[in-house]
């Protein structure tokens, strides 16, 4: 199925991020590619240039807003600081008393499965086949059929470890919930700055407020992060904590009708950077995985970097930080 894995499970938030310089380079490059593509996207890709708001609950988080503001300004990324009053005007359904927010006007939202289908148009796709073997000369399907190819790209998300157990990718479970249609309830993708704290805590299950307006008027609510489980069941206690956190930020949420909740698995790496490039020990096999929560965001840049390598072109950003053979020393 096209886009049936993490692509279907994720939010489809196209964001620029600043955890590290390589992360910033990849996300900002990819966002530029998405912006270029936006006018051609089909309507069912539901591209919504809504922008993001990173919410600061208190002065400590507001200090983080200013730090990020300086970071992005230095790098010529459009960015804006909203004070408490401006934030209340931008999102009236947020609770009063928040300190402010960082607005990223270039961030956007997409419905990834349909975007993926559109990106694959004109490319032969073999659905329902399992690859049992891959070499530098091509792949072999489980039914014995061989397919010769000059390059093989493994873009299998968390499933990569089934083929290559040494690859440092771990499934990181997440929950999401979508509501019925409430047009005008929410205008931007909202993320609490506390998200950064919880997103980085590896030891415990964590939840953080994250809400997204869909083109349909629906509201997509996240998020949770869990390691050490491969059970895709929606866990009531996690869902409950996640929604309780969301309600703290948006007191109007409790009366909205929830239609569906689901889970998905992010492909997480120890250093929070994806694995993009030649697979160690191979000359024509490439990896494109380990994007954790930024797979859709950075998909276009990922494709470009691998295409550049195959075609012997220079890339717009350095490729080294993402190479699968890099050292993960110092990261657990």
């Amino acid at each position: 199925m096209i886009g049936g894995g993490a692509t279907a499970a994720g939010m489809g938030h196209l964001a620029v991020m600043d955890d590290s310089d390589p992360q910033f380079a990849l996300t900002s490059y990819s966002q530029a590619l998405w912006s270029e593509l936006a006018p051609q996207l089909p309507p069912d890709a539901e591209y919504l240039p809504c922008g993001s708001l990173w919410l600061a609950a208190d002065d400590e988080e507001m200090a983080e807003v200013y730090r990020k503001f300086a970071f992005y300004q230095e790098r010529n990324i459009a960015v804006e600081v909203l004070d408490a009053k401006q934030l209340a005007e931008a999102e009236p359904n947020l609770r009063r008393g928040l300190a402010g927010a960082l607005r990223m006007p270039s961030d956007s939202v997409i419905y990834a499965p349909c975007a993926a289908r559109w990106l694959l148009e004109g490319i032969p796709v073999f659905l329902g086949h399992q690859v049992s073997e891959f070499t530098d000369e091509g792949v072999e399907f489980a039914n014995g059929h061989r397919f010769a190819a000059g390059s093989v790209i493994l873009a299998t998300g968390t499933a990569i470890t089934r083929a290559l157990p040494w690859v440092p990718v771990q499934p990181r479970k997440g929950h999401l919930l979508i509501t019925d249609r409430y047009p005008g309830f929410l205008h931007h993708q909202l993320i609490e700055l506390g998200y950064l704290k919880s997103a980085h805590s590896v030891a415990n299950d964590s939840v953080a407020f994250n809400a997204q307006p869909r083109a349909t008027g629906q509201i997509l609510i996240g998020s949770s992060r869990q390691f050490g489980t491969e059970d895709s069941t929606v866990e009531q206690d996690i869902l409950s904590r996640m929604l309780a956190r969301a309600i703290e930020y948006m007191p109007g949420l409790p009366t909205l009708s929830a239609i569906r909740a689901w889970t998905g698995f992010r492909a997480a790496t120890p250093d929070k950077l994806p694995l993009i490039g030649l697979c160690p020990g191979h000359s024509n096999v490439y990896l494109a995985t380990g994007h954790e929560g930024l797979g859709i965001s950075t998909s276009l840049a990922t494709g470009r970097l691998i295409a550049d390598h195959i075609l012997g072109r220079l890339s717009a950003i350095p490729r080294e930080p993402y190479l699968p053979g890099r050292s993960f020393d110092g990261h657990d």
Binding site: R245, L253, S257, W262
Partner: peptide, 20 residues
Amino acid sequence: IRPPAFPVRIASLVTTTLAT
């Protein structure tokens, strides 16, 4: 088939209190 089994108010899915 995904939970909730029926569309419900978000409040009805909040069954645990969150330590904040």
